[in-house]
Design a protein around this nucleic acid. Structure first.
Lengths: 198, 198
DNA sequence: AATACATGTGAGGGTTGTTAACTTTACCGC
DNA sequence: GCGGTAAAGTTAACAACCCTCACATGTATT
């Protein structure tokens, strides 16, 4: 743990991930280089390859960690409201949007891993878990089982919606869509509409 | 036009954009290099810089062209159905989703230009035009003016929705959300719900 | 025909991703 | 304590890439 020796400073993997997260956040998903990350961690540019096979694997590490945080935020959002309430559903969406607003770079990264990341079952699983939070909230609200097709359909609708809004909101920080949008009332409206739709 | 001389082959700019589009589509938004594009166009690796300042500027060229095609597809979608019909609105969304499915790489690229592209007023304008198609369709349906705040709000909701669905659909080609989804009935349901919502 | 300009080439500097061979440290059974 | 093994660093090197420079070659203007 404690970097006694300067060699083997004991915590490189985590420090690299942190450095990359910062780089991605400030310079965008492409403005990252393993060389710069190594520099920031105070090691040689070859050191990272003792912990990661690829630059891709480092990115996957960042994404994995980010998805954990996202899921927790969503769960916390739901937990802050009465079970089966509409608010609980909207709060899950709010957590999602908040995450995108707070860390747009990382948020983008999470959804841009396409090449070189084909086989990443753990990431797929974590994605499914995030979706699961939505499903769970919807199931509670409708008093149905989570695997009910209707629940799945509505949850997916909600997710599309929140996902799209999140992306649009960070893309056009300088307003394209006329006015500012009040997330909460927006999310409540949508949640209501989707739960009521045929 | 006709490359008489081998030098000055007269059409390099367009050919580069085409080459990059292909590269982005097959190797993903990151798997593109100016060098490779030049190679495919049959010119030296320095030639592109006579037409584009940056690698970023080439990408912007690809995006610009793609947004034109997207807008046209959306307009055509709407035009294929009776004015003011719900189908016309859904068809705009369908065109959007189809574009994403057909050219996922380019679609991603369009929405990942963040760094080095801060000042691109033409792209912002084209984005606004695409949104304008949705707004127009909604305004027709509700028999209101396009600049009516309610129209803008509902159009934005629809857009978020379709945008999110498009992304999710190309991200998880291998189904995370349980079953396959029938785009058209999905889009009709959503359009109806959003136009009816409070 | 002479000149100006646009558009190509080639060489080269600086950065990156990644590997290979080597060195240093931590740890484990004796 | 002691020696061996594996983990985790290092330097050196290569190819690829972005981009700039000085120069070459066509095209267009006058």
């Amino acid at each position: 743990m404690t970097p006694k020796s300067a060699y083997h400073h004991g915590d490189l993997r985590a420090q690299l991930i942190a450095a990359v997260r910062e780089l991605v956040e400030t310079h965008g998903p492409d403005g990252f280089s393993v060389a710069e990350a190594a520099r920031r961690a105070g090691v040689s540019s070859a050191a990272p390859y003792k912990h990661f096979k690829d630059r891709h694997e480092i990115l996957r590490g960042v994404v994995s960690e980010a998805m954990d945080r996202l899921r927790i935020a969503m769960e916390d959002g739901a937990a802050a409201h009465p079970i089966a309430s509409l608010e609980a559903i909207a709060a899950v969406g709010q957590a999602y949007v908040d995450f995108a607003r707070t860390e747009p770079g990382v948020f983008r990264l999470v959804f841009s891993l396409t090449e070189g990341h084909e086989n990443a079952p753990d990431l797929l699983a974590k994605g499914a878990n995030c979706f699961g939070v939505v499903v769970h909230a919807v199931a509670r609200r409708l008093d149905l089982r989570p695997d009910d097709p209707d629940v799945q359909r509505r949850a997916y609708m909600l997710w599309s919606f929140v996902h799209g809004h999140s992306f649009l909101t960070i893309d056009m920080k300088h307003k394209v869509a006329s006015a500012e949008i009040d997330d909460w009332s927006y999310l409540m409206t949508i949640s209501r509409a989707i739960l009521a739709a045929a």
